[in-house]
Each structure stands twice: as C-alpha cells, then as structure tokens.
C-alpha cells in the first residue's frame, strides 16, 4: 500500500521533467527545493510504512488506553481508570520486577560477547568464521523452536541437563517449573540466544580499531589483559553503547521465550511473567484491552526514559575516536 502514493508522485515528476525537455529548457532553477523533494520521495516508502505500522498503532493504543474495549467492538471512554488499575494491580509490580531481572540478565550478554569477540580477533586463531556462525545460529533460530528445545533440555525427569548432572551425583531440579529457578532458566536461554548478535557488533567494532595502537602498546610492554582494558574497551565503547541501548530495549520487551517455555499450568508462571506477557494475557486472554493498552503505554514510557538517560550519560564513558 505504502508504495502507491510515492510511485504516483514519481510519475508526476517524470511527466514534469519530460514536458520541460520538450520545451527545450530547464524550469527556473530552484535546486535546493528540488533535491529536498526527491529526498522526501526516497524516504517516503519507509516513512509511510513507519506511519502506518508504528505511529498510527501507537496513537490508537494511546486512545484505547483511555477506553473500555468492547470484546466484539464498541469502545467507551473511561478516562484514567485503566492507568489507575495498572498502578493498583499487584501482578504488575511482580511483572515489573521480573522484567527488570530479565533486563539485568540480558545485560550479562554484553561482557560475554565482548570477551568472545576479543578472543576471536586474536591473530593466528583458526576457524573464526565457523565459530562466528555457530554463535550466530541461535540468534537466527526461531525463538519458539529455541524455547521448545530448551524445555526438553530442562525437563526435570528426562532432560539432558539433569542427566548430565547425575553423572556427578548432583540431583537436578525441575528448572522451568520451580518458582525459584524458572526465571533464571529463561534468562540463561535469553543470553545464549542473543550472544551471537552482540558478538557480530563487537567484532565489527574491534576490527575498526587501528592495529598500530596494539603494536605500539606491545612495544611499550603492555600484556594482552592490559591491551584489552586500555585499548579495546575504550575504543569499543561506541559499540558497547549501541549494544546496551538495544539490549535494554529488547530485554524489557521479553515475550516469546517466556510464552513458549511456560505452560499455563506452570506453578512458576507468576515468577516469570514479564510486562509484555502480562500485556498479552490481559489483551488477548482476559479481554482487558483497555488496561493492556495502558500497560503497554507505560512500558513504552519506561523504555523511552531509560534510553534517554543512557544517551544523556554516554558522554561520561563513550569515546568517539
């Protein structure tokens, strides 16, 4: 849909141009406006898509958050009632706590990925593309498949993890259905499946660091650890900043793994529920779309605030070479 207006405009521009050519003269020169217009034309497809699929739903969600949503149509204005309900609901507090926990666990991915990226960029290491592909594979695998397979691994009676533990005489648990371990079990899968993505970002970042710095440092007698902390980390900070922003946004919206791994009868359901799974439950199971919209909007504000703060404080630790 989004392409039609822009192509129509492009055709119109074509027609004008050909008319101008017939007259054998160029139209009065207003190059700045011309180039601006073509710039708009170029961004039109994506901008329209963005308007239709992001901005419009956003506005709609904002409107829904002030209404009581009729299951089969018909919304009625209820003012701030939904927001009041969200604030008063105890499950929201629990879900928020879990979501923050997911975010912290998500952030653990970053140091892991940095160390791996550094190791893989050591000179003389063989088979780097193979490792990179192996680490990247989980990221391009469907989360639903990842969740299912990990559920089998985690199975308390027949899972491979407990089987392996039993060789060492350790009695495993019911990892995903024990309220005290479930959230960490999911977090571990999260880290595992995202580490490849950040690995690629950091590898690119490390590759951009001039070799001369390392050589100079080596001549001055700096060991590998020191080189890592004094050269790699500071010069990688723009990549780390980018990764942190993305990671916080993504992990605050954690949904698919939890949804796949936690069955509705799981006694650890409450302990693993994130804001977005709660949103799903309200909106699509319990028909509380109004309250769900309010919850989604509050989550967006939270993410926006956290992202703003990160940009605000980046000056203190991000070095742009």
């Amino acid at each position: 849909m989004a392409v039609f207006p822009s192509t129509a405009a492009a055709q119109a521009a074509d027609r004008r141009r050909s008319r101008a050519a017939e007259r054998g003269s160029t139209p009065s020169p207003r190059p700045r406006r011309r180039s601006q217009r073509s710039a708009y034309l170029f961004i039109a497809p994506i901008a329209l898509g963005f308007l239709v699929f992001y901005i419009w739903p956003l506005l709609e969600t904002f409107w829904f958050s002030f209404t009581s949503f009729g299951v089969f149509g018909g919304n009625t204005w209820v003012g701030g009632e939904n927001y009041e309900g969200v604030v008063r609901d105890v499950t929201v507090g629990q879900a928020l706590g879990n979501t923050v926990l997911y975010m912290l666990m998500g952030l653990v991915t970053l140091p892991v990925a940095i160390v791996l990226a550094d190791l893989m960029n050591r000179r003389g290491l063989r088979g780097v593309p193979v490792y990179r592909a192996l680490y990247f594979l989980p990221f391009v695998t469907m989360p639903a498949a990842v969740g299912l397979v990990w559920n089998w691994l985690y199975n308390g009676d027949f899972g491979m993890i407990n089987e392996a533990l039993s060789w060492f005489g350790v009695d495993g648990r019911y990892w995903v259905s024990d309220p005290s371990t479930a959230v960490y079990a999911i977090g571990a899968v999260m880290v595992w499946s995202h580490v490849g993505y950040y690995l690629i970002i950091f590898t690119a970042g490390i590759k951009a660091i001039p070799r001369d710095y390392y050589e100079a440092a080596e001549i001055d007698g700096a060991g590998p650890v020191r080189r890592f902390f004094r050269i790699t980390l500071p010069l990688l900070s723009p990549s780390i900043f980018f990764a942190t922003v993305i990671c916080v946004i993504n992990s605050l919206q954690q949904f698919d793994l939890i949804f796949v791994m936690m069955s509705p009868e799981n006694p650890a359901l409450g302990e693993t529920q994130s804001i977005v799974t709660l949103f799903f439950k309200w909106a699509f199971q319990e028909n509380a779309q109004g309250a769900a919209a309010a919850l989604a909007f509050l989550l967006m504000l939270l993410i926006a605030a956290l992202t703003y703060l990160q940009f605000r404080f980046q000056k203190r630790w991000v070095h742009y070479a």
Partner: peptide, 20 residues
Amino acid sequence: RTTVWENLQPQLLGGPFTGK
C-alpha cells in the same frame, strides 16, 4: 469473564501443589 478467574488459579494454587 471465566478466563480472568481461571488464570488466577494456577498462580495462587501453584505453591500448595508443589508442596510450598
């Protein structure tokens, strides 16, 4: 709105059904 209170059950009864 059956689903709303059905969803409460596993959350609140889960503890006792796991011995907690």
